[in-house]
């Protein structure tokens, strides 16, 4: 079982990459800015935190997904995987390690962004209600759900796309749309919407990853 080793390795490579540095700084910054921007929701009853979450997680998810797809396509085309595949490990471990490393980094960045938002609220308002904290928790759960779907879509697109350009276009136009699917229960104001969102995102991410792994297992290098 080499997943742990590969995961630690990918994490080491990813957390200090340029995109990740942008996310470490950019996501909390965007969360702060959102507290001072009024958003037009066309009269619909959409909570402000949800709008903020959609924008922040969509941006982070898209960047993470593009990066995952580009990494995988580049490494595939440059034949980086040859040296891994001739060693006693399972092919799926390569893909899963990459997904987990990127997801963990972006999840931590999202957490920092939400905590930053709470702190800004606390400083500007002077106190925090339980309802506001619950809102923030919901916001974080929604954000992580969307990012999980984005990342798994990025992995799938990376596995089957022949070129970086095709991969990037598919992630931006396709992966981004797919990542919004977990928001449907919230949009429909279903009871226990957050739980539905998490379950839906988990299932969707699982299916996308399973397809990616199946394709990667079949690829001839």
């Amino acid at each position: 079982m080499q997943l742990g080793l590969l995961f630690a390795d990918e994490l080491r490579g990813f957390y200090k990459s340029k995109v990740m540095i942008f996310l470490w700084i950019g996501m909390p910054l965007i969360a702060v800015l959102f507290r001072f921007i009024s958003v037009e929701t066309s009269g619909q009853d959409i909570p402000f935190t949800l709008v903020s979450t959609v924008v922040v997680s969509s941006l982070a998810g898209t960047l993470a997904a593009v990066m995952l797809a580009v990494f995988i396509i580049n490494e595939k085309n440059r034949r980086v995987y040859d040296l891994f595949l001739i060693r006693p490990l399972k092919r799926r471990e390569i893909i899963l390690a990459k997904f987990l490393a990127v997801y963990l980094c972006v999840a931590i960045a999202s957490f920092i962004a939400v905590v930053t938002g709470i702190m800004v609220d606390y400083v500007t308002i002077g106190s925090m209600s339980m309802a506001a904290l619950a809102d923030a928790g919901t916001s974080l759960a929604t954000s992580l759900s969307m990012i999980a779907v984005s990342c798994s879509a990025g992995v799938l697109i990376g596995v089957f796309s022949p070129t970086v350009l095709v991969g990037a276009i598919l992630v931006i136009y396709g992966g981004n749309q797919v990542s919004v699917i977990p928001l449907v229960p919230t949009m429909l104001n279903l009871p226990q919407a957050t739980v539905f969102t998490i379950v839906l995102a988990g299932a969707l991410a699982g299916v996308l990853l399973a397809v990616a792994v199946a394709l990667f297992e079949r690829q001839q290098f």
């Binding site: 080793l5 390795d9 080491r12 490579g13 990459s17 490494e75 440059r78 034949r79 040296l83 006693p88």
Partner: peptide, 22 residues
């Protein structure tokens, strides 16, 4: 391989550590 390639972020030492352990 004919055209050996490594992940770009790695140093020689990191690459060898990983492949040795694998």
């Amino acid at each position: 391989p004919q055209n050996v390639a490594f992940q770009e972020w790695r140093t020689i030492n990191q690459a060898l550590r990983t492949f040795g352990k694998l």
